[in-house]
């Protein structure tokens, strides 16, 4: 081995980790800014100082209610749910080595949605009940899809296709449930299904936060194994990754995050789908994508909610905005992925 090669290796590794550090730093800054803007802007404008006092628990006329009870939970939920969606989405995309294999496509979101629609329309459950239903169903669908695609080990392609089939079935179940709905329930269910931050409460926000605190570290502990899975199952296994164990841990953690976030906000379209590829674009292959994708997700939801609330004369739920913004990027991504022949 020559020293010049060693130097080159060290240099390129340092460059990669520095780039990663810079990217994460910038993303964190952007999320903080977007979060602050979400707190300040609205019917009434409040200065950062007033908001800071509200956060510290002081009583500020007007702001204490508007910021403390409405904007703070809403913006916090937006950031947390976005982070969960980004994290969960990129996990599936990395594990299945296909940016299109996001939870929205392979049935997990559909399962949570069908369950929520059922809980709202048929059972007439309250918010907590709806959440529990959505979470259980999301996990249930993940287990069913995983089991059905198991034949001498799980092949990514088979899992994706079976997920698409299950999603189709669940979507039609949702449609049926909605067709049985009374007008009021229908609107509530539809709003939930589009993904909305309206009526965000501290209770919901805390639930998502707890999920993130518990499941996030579990997922991050598998970050390096996930990273190795990018090289293909055989290569990863030859490099000492235990495939089934990694997959199961990662699926449980990711589905849990997705389900809790979905239960709180409804399936916000395309956030899980887009965060990973956008993060991959910015980070440029320098290390694990988990944290950058989570930050991108948080940023997407915060910005989309701002646009949905204030950019038009009608208030759109955040899911409509992410859907409309995400659709063209999705199609672009599809074209690019197929050209390149797969992999994130």
């Amino acid at each position: 081995m020559t020293t010049s090669t060693l130097d080159a290796v060290v240099r390129s590794r340092v460059r990669r980790s520095r780039r990663r550090g810079v990217v994460i730093g910038i993303l964190v800054a952007l999320v903080v800014i977007a979060y602050a803007v979400n707190l300040m802007v609205g019917e009434t404008f409040y200065t950062p100082y007033e908001i800071w006092r509200v956060i510290l628990g002081e009583t500020v006329p007007g702001a204490s209610f508007t910021v403390g009870e409405l904007r703070l939970p809403r913006a916090t939920l937006a950031a947390l749910a976005g982070f969960c969606f980004g994290l969960g989405g990129v996990t599936f995309q990395t594990m299945l080595r296909n940016p299109l294999a996001s939870p929205d496509v392979i049935g997990i979101t559909s399962g949570a949605s069908a369950a929520a629609a059922f809980a709202i329309v048929i059972l007439g459950l309250s918010e907590t009940g709806v959440s529990v239903f959505a979470i259980v169903a999301g996990l249930g669908v993940a287990i069913v899809v995983y089991t059905l695609s198991f034949r001498d080990g799980v092949a990514g392609t088979r899992l994706i296709l079976i997920g698409i089939g299950i999603a189709a079935m669940l979507d039609s179940a949702t449609a049926y449930v909605l067709s049985q709905a009374a007008q009021w329930d229908l609107q509530q269910a539809q709003r939930w299904l589009t993904g909305s931050l309206n009526g965000a409460t501290w209770d919901e926000t805390v639930q998502v936060l707890v999920a993130l605190v518990v499941l996030g570290p579990l997922l991050l502990s598998q970050a390096r194994n996930l990273f190795m899975l990018q090289l293909g199952d055989d290569t990863a296994a030859a490099l000492g990754v235990r495939l089934e164990r990694t997959r199961i841990l990662v699926i449980v953690a990711a589905v849990g995050l997705l389900a809790f976030a979905t239960a709180a906000t409804g399936p916000i379209a395309f956030v899980a789908f887009l965060s990973g590829p956008i993060a991959a674009r910015i980070v440029g292959g320098a290390g694990s994508l988990l944290v950058p994708a989570g930050l991108v997700g948080a940023l997407l939801v915060l910005v989309a909610d701002l646009i949905g609330q204030y950019a038009f004369d009608i208030r759109y739920p955040v899911g409509v905005i992410t859907g409309v913004l995400g659709a063209p990027y999705l199609v672009y991504l599809l074209i690019r992925t197929n050209r390149a022949g797969g992999s994130l």
Binding site: D104, F270, V324, L330, V331
Partner: peptide
């Protein structure tokens, strides 16, 4: 994917 995009 395109169905999802169209649906939104």
């Amino acid at each position: 994917a395109i169905s999802a995009a169209l649906a939104s």
